[in-house]
Design a protein around this nucleic acid. Sequence first.
DNA 1: AAATGTTTAGCGTGAC
DNA 2: GTCACGCTAAACATTT
Length: 320
Amino acid sequence: MPRPGRNTYSDQKPPYSYISLTAMAIQSSPEKMLPLSEIYKFIMDRFPYYRENTQRWQNSLRHNLSFNDCFIKIPRRPDQPGKGSFWALHPSCGDMFENGSFLRRRKRFKVVKSDHLAPSKPADAAQYLQQQAKLRLSALAATGTHLPQMSTYNLGVSQPSSFKHPFAIENIIAREYKMPGGLAFSTMQPMPAAYPLPNQLTTVGSSIGTGWPHMYSSGMIDTATPISMASSEYGAYGVPIKPLCHGGQTLPAIPVPIKPTPAAVPALPALPAPIPTILSNSPPSLSPTSSQTATSQSSPATPSETLTSPAPALHSVAVH
DNA sequence: AAATGTTTAGCGTGAC
DNA sequence: GTCACGCTAAACATTT
């Protein structure tokens, strides 16, 4: 794969915060969770700028992971030896970025810690995410279906229209899907000629069809995977049900509280109770089967349950 | 030892 | 000016 020289735009710093980059990496993974090393890898693969000064930005990135409530830590299972935990996005943080733009958060995501009833704790979110990942894998194993691998960080759902901000992760990640010949192409929408990139970006003409001068297509995403935005392929919070095909990554660990909050947290059931939706602004179209009921408390999840299990109420607020 | 995770601090920028 | 956000640095603890 060709690499640009140092004087190309690809070496410039992407207009994304570390929070955004981390969110992209996590959302690009099939299980919506990645270990730190994979987050590093994702960023370095796609943004040549971050192939240098790794100590600096990786320290900042770790700081962000720990500091921001929108990231939750999920421990590895005992049969998953390795360093560090998995990191995931808090299910309720999908509305952090205005219009789905990853340029700057419109508000800080903050988990409510005072609600003694709602499972608002990061550990609860971690538990839910682990459950979701497990259910996705169960569905895959049961059906053998090769579901589309497409990141859908459901940021634009607050908007009634189908508009997706150019910096929404759907566009950012979709843009890097590669053609067999190595050329990236947009799987979501044509890249406007005058892309509203900050600074110099509108003048970029050498972005090799990606419309995105900072990002490299690394081949990390399965390029042979068909891509679809069909609503039926989405699970809870508009997250697509996707196969486990991410470099042999294994199941997430058993949920264990990582970031305990001062408030006492009652023990959670093995599986979260069904709650209509996490993203209150998620359009019905992304939860086509949400009317169905799914009780995964006492029985193994079936694929249909996997696709219809509603999200638990993970109460959180975005404070500004 | 190295990687990972947590915490504190200071500074710059943009919005209000 | 204030505030929120983001970046960087640093120190320290924990885990593998």
